[in-house]
Computed example of a mutant assay.
Amino acid sequence: MTHRSRLAGFIIDCQGGDHDAATTFWSCALGLPVTETYEEGQARYAELGEAPGGLHVEVQRVDHASRVHLDIESDDIDAEADRLEALGAKRIGFVKRWWVMEAPTGHRFCVVRLRDRAGASEPNTWD
């Protein structure tokens, strides 16, 4: 079955601490305005707008060590996870509505639902 995917953007994971201060730092450091903040359960998010190439950039409060990870978005997250597994990635777990994956290099990333974003590149089509 054919599905589509593309790089969605970058998520700045910040362990605990003051999420507002972390958001202010990254907003100022990257020159990207805060466009939305929200909470979902224990998680807290701040979206940074106007990123180059229509990329999605957000600051996320997490329990694990601070790091930056990327999101790949797809119109069929299970098919995309299957495709990435065939390339050597492994599924770590399903969280809320996305797959957490690990590349053969040890880097963690997520496969999330495809979103319509102004300025975003066209997704790749996979068979």
Rank of each mutant, 00 (worst) to 15 (best):
M1L: 13
M1R: 15
T2V: 15
H3Y: 15
H3P: 08
R4N: 09
S5I: 05
S5F: 11
R6V: 02
R6Y: 01
I11Y: 09
I12E: 12
D18A: 07
D18W: 07
D20M: 11
A21P: 05
T23G: 08
T24Q: 14
T24C: 07
T24Y: 08
T24E: 13
F25C: 08
W26Y: 15
S27N: 10
A29F: 14
G31I: 10
G31N: 07
V34F: 08
T35L: 02
E36A: 09
E36K: 14
Y38I: 05
E39C: 12
E39A: 12
E40G: 07
G41L: 06
G41N: 06
G41D: 06
Q42I: 11
R44F: 12
Y45P: 09
A46K: 12
E47Q: 14
E47N: 14
L55I: 04
H56F: 04
E58T: 10
V59S: 13
Q60F: 14
R61H: 12
V62L: 11
V62Q: 10
R67M: 10
H69I: 12
L70M: 10
D71I: 03
I72V: 03
I72H: 00
D76E: 12
I77H: 05
E80C: 14
A81Q: 01
D82R: 13
D82E: 14
R83I: 05
E85C: 15
A86S: 15
L87T: 02
G88E: 00
K90N: 02
K90A: 03
R91M: 07
G93W: 04
G93I: 02
G93T: 09
V95H: 11
K96W: 04
W98F: 14
W98D: 06
W99L: 01
V100Q: 15
M101G: 01
P104S: 00
P104D: 02
P104G: 02
H107W: 05
H107Q: 10
H107M: 03
F109L: 00
C110N: 09
C110S: 06
R113F: 03
L114K: 03
D116M: 03
A118E: 09
A118G: 02
G119C: 01
A120F: 02
A120P: 01
S121G: 07
S121V: 09
P123A: 03
W126P: 08
